[in-house]
């Protein structure tokens, strides 16, 4: 096995995630795509950790941190989506233009 096969796979998953984030209108689906991107990052972290044979196992430890933070992010993200849905009866991101000038 070589490192790059994992890295390229991760890059592919990450790009698919980007596509999802950019193209999906439903906020829940956008969050799903973000999960894909985070998974790709985790693959990278673990692969690098393995490659470097780090005594601190930091690659895996950070993958664990990412998983934890991702769980928190999903919880908050879904709560926000639900809140928005309740206020606007829609969970479509393209109808949310509060950032507009």
């Amino acid at each position: 096995m070589i490192v790059n096969q994992f890295l390229v796979l991760a890059a592919l998953l990450f790009s698919i995630g980007i596509y999802g984030v950019l193209v999906r209108r439903n906020a829940v689906l956008v969050l799903l795509s973000i999960e894909l991107m985070l998974t790709a990052v985790n693959i990278n972290l673990v692969a690098f950790g393995q490659y470097l044979q780090d005594a601190l196992v930091s690659g895996q430890v950070f993958a664990l941190f990412v998983i934890t933070v991702a769980a928190a992010e999903v919880g908050i993200g879904l709560a926000i989506v639900i809140l928005i849905f309740r206020n606007r009866s829609s969970a479509n991101v393209d109808e949310l233009d509060l950032l507009k000038w």
Partner: peptide, 13 residues
């Protein structure tokens, strides 16, 4: 991805 982690020896992750 979990299967890949197993291949990489990261069974806990």
């Amino acid at each position: 991805s979990a299967a890949l982690f197993l291949m990489l020896g990261a069974e806990f992750v």
